[in-house]
Design a protein around this nucleic acid. Structure first.
Length: 571
RNA sequence: CGGGGCGUAGCGCAGCUUGGUUUAGCGCGCCUGCCUUGGGAGCAGGAGGUCGGAGGUUCGAAUCCUCUCGCCCCGACCA
């Protein structure tokens, strides 16, 4: 490729909308252009990278025995009614109508379509197992698109679906995919961590997330260096024994104190000069069918995913102030478990069970209660692990010290079981002649997101540093002065040789000053740069520069031509 | 959706508070010519804007008011 014909337009300054380095660099290097919030054009240079990643994904999927197909983006409402997700998936799915006012969704994922295909195609156990995959555009109307292609509303995803006779088969296929995913992310030179995850709206019980480690990541993960345990924040369990020691001592008598205008935990701890650890906060939550009071230690945060699971309900939100006043008889900020005006279920975090003589709201304006105790003063209806893990908690597996890190979710795998096959009637006749539901797994990779994750992990103040495997070009030829005869002769000779050897090469043939060309080369981050300057060109010498290490080496052109495919060995 | 902020040339911004000397500016980029060629040079000339849009106030609106659209940040949400 000749730069002069490439439509690579770099920017000196990143557009102000970009916050994180990958987004800034993708815009500055001209890989993508924004069309609307969360909707991007892949420019030729960006598309080259995207295709490379797609090919890596495709190769590993094919190696694992999965079959590629292509499903439609436009999906009829009826299918989603069958699975029951037309309503539960909510506003995330972009819904459209055709001219006859029939409803369609733009596919955010393809369980429904693929299950429909399978229930029509698979009749017998002899056709199983089978795994299908596609690399395709997905639409999700994200509440808040962010960070360029990391959280986009239209993006490229690889989604795969496995179909088995039984759980054993699923486990085998799941392992295969898991291994393929590791290979894919290894090839992309990503540093990642695999964590246990919640399966959410997808269903099923076992689920793993593949997280690229990055400070700018939106997800938080827990990792134990001593035993290797990993989980995302929603999932990470808490082994609760920290407070047991503090639990000794007598129950003191309950006491009401005036706390005028003291509403927040912070104000309260300052006012009463107590630690938030001696405080129990009471949050009023609304589910689809009930209102509950949730008790948690003052310095902890409620993990709503865990709470949802414990309550076995759908829909969970903090009650508004009107509801709180109605339930507790006091304004927001003075809620407690003792003397609630209306009788509601009281849910407590495990940690609270071990607390004694703690402080709570009094359900009365400007008042709190000291020395509150469970059983004596109020009863708990349900308890469980409902808080977020913190770095001072122990590893749930080995009780070691855990680390908390930020990550970008690259891939997610699920053991779905029969959730979709049952609701949509995907069955097969087994060897025993009996009809059974097919056992499914599903596996997703955010293909376009990988680009951002790679850049996030591989850049410096000058630009992108592509790993060879996904670099848009392997080599950039940089003739310093295109008006110098010897320079351009050598540059063209090398360029043609690279082309004939099928090594991806770009030549910066623009009649620009050297500074501009060097800056642009650093920005777009091609792994190897061959600089041709007029002085050395006279001696038939060029300079090879590695973008990642910054190493330079002068090489004779003839030696280089003889050994092009080993170009890296020169440095 | 709740809270906050921003829309002025391809990108980054000033002007708005206090309406009129601004024919709407500046830096970068873009075009032409000269000059220059190892890290975003210099000189000279030039193109590019319905100041996000629609109403309104006014003799007069980028500037004030109302509505609207778009974008960004924080939060909640999320495979």
């Amino acid at each position: 490729m000749r730069w002069s014909e490439s439509l690579i337009n770099t920017l000196w300054q990143a557009p102000s909308e970009a916050e994180i380095s990958s987004h800034k660099l993708m815009l500055r290097a001209g890989l993508i252009k924004k069309l609307a919030a969360g909707i991007y054009v892949f420019m030729p240079l960006g598309l080259k990278v995207l295709r490379k990643i797609e090919n890596i994904v495709r190769e590993e999927m094919d190696n694992s025995g999965a079959l590629e197909l292509l499903m439609p983006t436009l999906q009829p409402e009826q299918l989603w009614q069958e699975s029951g997700r037309w309503n539960t998936i909510g506003k995330e799915m972009i819904k459209v109508q055709d001219r006859r006012e029939r409803q369609f969704g733009l596919g955010p994922t393809h369980e429904e379509v693929v299950t429909d295909i399978i229930r029509k195609e698979i009749k017998s156990y002899k056709q199983l197992p089978v795994t299908l995959y596609q690399i395709q555009t997905k639409f999700r109307d994200e509440i808040r698109p962010r960070f360029g292609v990391i959280r986009a509303r239209e993006f490229i995803m690889k989604d795969a679906y496995s179909f088995d006779q039984d759980i054993d088969g699923l486990n085998k296929n799941y392992k295969k995919m898991y291994n393929a995913y590791c290979k894919i992310f290894d090839k992309c030179a990503l540093e990642y961590q695999i964590v246990e995850a919640e399966s959410g709206i997808m269903g099923g019980n076992v689920s793993h997330e593949f997280m690229a480690l990055a400070d700018s990541g939106e997800d938080t993960i827990v990792h134990c260096p001593s035993c290797g345990y990993g989980a995302n924040m929603e999932k990470a369990e808490i082994v609760n024994n920290e407070q047991k020691k503090a639990n000794k001592g007598k129950e003191k008598s309950i006491e009401k104190v005036n706390t005028p205008n003291v509403k927040t935990i912070k104000q309260l701890t300052e006012f009463l000069k107590i630690s938030p650890k001696n405080l129990v906060k009471t949050l009023i939550y609304k589910t689809n069918d009930q209102i509950v009071a949730v008790l948690i230690r003052g310095d902890r945060e409620v993990n709503e995913t865990k709470l949802l699971k414990l309550l076995q309900c759908v829909g969970l939100e903090l009650a508004n102030s009107d509801t709180i006043e109605k339930i507790t008889g006091a304004p927001v900020g003075f809620t407690g478990p003792v003397g609630l005006k209306e009788k509601i279920k009281i849910v407590a975090d495990n940690e609270v069970l071990n607390m004694k003589n703690f402080t709570t709201g009094a359900n009365k304006k400007d008042a709190h209660l000291l020395n509150v105790n469970i059983e004596r003063d109020f009863k708990i209806d349900i308890s469980g692990d409902i808080r977020f893990i913190t770095k001072s908690d122990q590893c749930p597996k080995c009780a070691g010290h855990i680390k908390i890190k930020k990550g970008i979710e690259l891939g997610h795998t699920f053991k779905l079981g029969s959730k979709y096959s049952e609701s949509m009637g995907a069955r097969f006749i087994g060897k025993d002649g009996r009809e059974k539901s097919i056992i499914m797994g599903c596996y997703g990779i955010g293909v376009s997101r990988i680009i951002a994750a790679v850049i996030e992990q591989n850049n410096d103040e000058n630009g992108i540093i592509w790993p060879k495997s996904i670099a848009p070009y392997q080599v950039e030829i940089l003739p310093v002065n295109v008006n110098d005869k010897e320079t351009i002769q050598i540059a063209e000779k090398l360029y043609k040789k690279f082309l004939s050897e099928k090594i991806e090469v770009i030549i910066d043939d623009r009649n620009e000053r050297p500074g501009i060309k060097f800056k642009d080369a650093d920005l777009i981050g091609i792994p190897i740069r061959i600089t041709i300057g007029s002085k050395k060109a006279k001696d038939n010498i060029v300079e090879i520069h590695k973008r990642d290490t910054g190493e330079n080496k002068s090489v004779n052109v003839d030696d280089l031509l003889k050994n092009l495919t080993n170009i890296c060995s020169f440095v």
